[in-house]
Each structure stands twice: as C-alpha cells, then as structure tokens.
Simulated scan of single mutants.
Amino acid sequence: MRIAVCDDDALMREQIQKYIKAYFEKTCVKCPEIVCFSNGESLLSDKEEKDILFLDIEMPGINGIYVGNELKRQNENIIIFVVTSYAEYLDDAMRFHVFRYLSKPLDIHRFFRNMKEAVSLYNTITIKVPIETKQGIHTLPASAVIMVEAFGRKVIVHSTMRDFDSVHNMQYWLELLPQNCFFQTHRSFIVNFEHIVDFDHTLIHMTGGQFRAYLTKRKYNAFKEAYLLYLESSR
C-alpha cells in the first residue's frame, strides 16, 4: 500500500501524516509508505502507484478537482479522501467518486473510523482468492467472483471470467471471502455486493442478468443493512 497526501498547507500535510501513522500504530499494523505533495502538478508527475490519497481542493495551480478526475481516470480503484474547508466543492468532487469528504479542522476519531473503512476497501480490491478445481488452481481477485452457488453436490464459483467447479464446500467459501463484500443469502448462495443489480424479499439479480440468487426472508433485513453499508463505504 502507498498513501499520498496532497495539500499546499505544510501543517495540514504534517497533521495528516501524524494521524495516518497513529492509526496504523493503534491497529498494530506496519505503517505503509506515505508520500507528500504540495501541489497538484507534483502529484500528477509522480508515476508510482497511489492506493489511498488525501487531496486538498483549493491549491495554487491545478486544483484538486482536476487532479482527482485525472487520477481516477488513470486508476479507478484509487481511494480518494477530499480534505478541504470549502463545502461548495463537494458536488464537483463527488463526480469522480470520492471515498470520503473530510472537513478541516480534522476530527481524529472520524479520521480513524474512515481510515478503517478505506483499508478494508483496499484489502477487498487487492485480495486474491485461490479457486481449486479437479483440474488445478486458478487465482482471481475477490472482486471478480460474482457469487458462489451450491447446486446439487457441486459448488460452483461464478466469476467474471467463467464458472469453476470448486472442490471445497460452502463453509470454506464463507470463511475465505471478505465478509464486508460477500453475504450468504441462502444456504446455497453467497453473493458479492459489487455485482448486485437489484433485489426483493426473495430474489437477487446479479451482473449481466444471467445469475440470480435466492434470499431467505429471515435474512432479508440483515442482508439489506449489510448491502447499504457496503454502498456507503465504497461510494
């Protein structure tokens, strides 16, 4: 993981760095690389990967709106925090799918809460899962798994690439897949929130229209709550 901070205010850059380091110290995880930039030009000239970005909007030269749009165009998975005192930029910032909007002065408790969600999202995007079949092992990003289905004696992993007949049972997949993105809606189905198109009290339609999963009535409320939380944390 590589975290970038872009703000023309040196004190704000220092404070964000301090909060990031404090968060990882609190969670007993080694702090990733943190790189700082004082303007949009220097940030855009940096060609290395940026996984999480804290971005000021009002800066000399290129403003944060342009920078955010450009970085999202280069890497749609970048997680962007907009950090600013100017609420009038919120609508423009949301157009390039800002993860969170943090107002100055920063509240450390809110900062930690949002960092936890950002790290969780990053892990979900980058985590890869092994799919073992009788023919061999295939490794895919977790995000490529549409759903897992128990069909008769088979367990089928439906993915964006193709279907795989897994040698493992549903309990194995329930424990392996990240819980913030996957939900067991029925004893025969585990669905990926990312690929849901729509749902009602009994049925969930997935990406492309070719997949659907059953939803038991007793799980409906818990599923709906988890799905809405997922949407909130990934917008």
Rank of each mutant, 00 (worst) to 15 (best):
E25R: 12
R218M: 08
K21E: 14
Y220C: 05
E225F: 07
I204T: 04
K30M: 11
F211C: 10
V167E: 05
R13T: 03
D56C: 05
L228W: 10
L102D: 03
L228V: 09
L44M: 15
T27Q: 13
S233T: 12
C181V: 09
Y86T: 03
N123M: 11
M1D: 04
V98G: 07
N75P: 01
T185Q: 05
F211I: 08
A93V: 11
F151L: 13
Y23K: 05
K128P: 00
F96M: 08
V145N: 04
H205N: 12
F96A: 06
R235T: 11
N169P: 00
E41V: 14
V148R: 04
M12S: 14
V35E: 10
R110Q: 15
T185K: 02
D7E: 11
K154Q: 12
V119G: 00
S103N: 11
W173R: 02
I3E: 03
G40S: 03
E132K: 14
F199R: 04
V83L: 06
I16V: 14
V129F: 01
V148A: 10
D51N: 15
I65R: 02
C181F: 10
L176A: 14
H186G: 01
M94G: 03
M147D: 04
L174G: 15
I78T: 05
Y230M: 08
I78H: 10
V145D: 01
I146C: 06
R113A: 15
Q135D: 13
S45M: 14
V119S: 01
M206V: 03
H186T: 00
L229Q: 15
D107M: 04
K26H: 12
P60L: 08
T139R: 12
D7Q: 11
L90Q: 11
Y214T: 08
A118L: 06
L90A: 14
V82F: 06
E41H: 12
N169C: 05
L102P: 03
R162F: 01
L90G: 00
L11C: 09
G61L: 07
E76Q: 14
A93Y: 02
L121W: 13
V83M: 05
D165G: 00
A10D: 13
F96E: 07
R95N: 11
L176P: 00
S45F: 11
A142N: 12
I52W: 06
E76V: 10
F189T: 01
K128H: 12
A87N: 11
P141A: 07
N75V: 00
F24V: 05
Y86W: 08
K154A: 12
